[in-house]
Design a protein around this nucleic acid. Sequence first.
DNA 1: TATTGTTATACTCTATAACTATA
DNA 2: TATAGTTATAGAGTATAACAATA
Lengths: 178, 178
Amino acid sequence: MPRTDHIPGPAPAAVPAAVPGPASAPTAAEFAFPLVRRTGYLLHKAGVLLMHEADRALESRGMRMRYFYVLAALEGGPSLSQQDLSGLLNLDPTTMVALIDEMESAGHVERRRNPADRRRYILDLTDAGREALLGASRAVEEVEQDFLSAVPAADRERLRDILGEVLADRWPSVISCE
Amino acid sequence: MPRTDHIPGPAPAAVPAAVPGPASAPTAAEFAFPLVRRTGYLLHKAGVLLMHEADRALESRGMRMRYFYVLAALEGGPSLSQQDLSGLLNLDPTTMVALIDEMESAGHVERRRNPADRRRYILDLTDAGREALLGASRAVEEVEQDFLSAVPAADRERLRDILGEVLADRWPSVISCE
DNA sequence: TATTGTTATACTCTATAACTATA
DNA sequence: TATAGTTATAGAGTATAACAATA
């Protein structure tokens, strides 16, 4: 069924369409919005949708993706300052202040003055922070598994390799909080 | 070179890393931010980066992606009202007002009262609007080509098919302005 | 003088509620 | 009474600028 062919009709908001196959006949979604056939559009939408679902999964834990990213960046490596994180994750320093405040009052991060440069902090994950990271990692992983469940394992690896190739010459701008 | 191993060092903002291969040794980026190995992370970042580049390409034409999307949605089909568009693209009706205002004053869209229901508009692309759409389409396509230039043609088709499969049961929420 | 972290402020974007004109 | 479009307003989120402490 093509979209609203009658002038005064209601919105075609709910497009009951199937997947845009490579060589199949145009679906309703394609007819209403031909861009859905483009690889770039699909790539963007898949990324945004996955991120939204991951964000929703973290919401119940009082986190957002950036929270998770900071936990991940602080784990297992040498100490980082707020500006280190700010540079690494491409997040405004003033925003980072509020984020670290939040993480500190949640008991996931500790601020410690750097004795070698007392302007800087050394940020450390607490045990609770490590635990929170573990839980969040599992939640995000589960979202990812579910999101890609329709894709056979071999294709999933293929997908990762292709994306890795696409992003190969785009480091470090790839690392960012959106 | 691993990240800042010295406590008082400067930010590891510029991570001089290569692509995260499936089974290669950890790169600097992976060391600083292990998430870069995950398919989901790569998918999200690829989508966001591509969108940013497309947005930048449209900027010189005074457009953003949503502007482009509305042009695309209005092209070649039966008439749509503002609320039709609002529902289709998942954009707030009040935001749509401002967007159509902008497009109208740019001479790309015309508002016409719907004689069958004088509350609604019928939105039509002007010739200039069609021309703008064509130019924008080419610009976006070029960005996409460039973005995927490292990927062989066969893999690009594969990528599109895999993404199509991933999104297959997620219509119509896939259609949206982010 | 430059830099880290901080605060206060301004700005952008979006959503909410209320209004009009039509139905 | 309900809906399409509009406007005004409030809210969230972010960036900008100024400041204190330290280098």
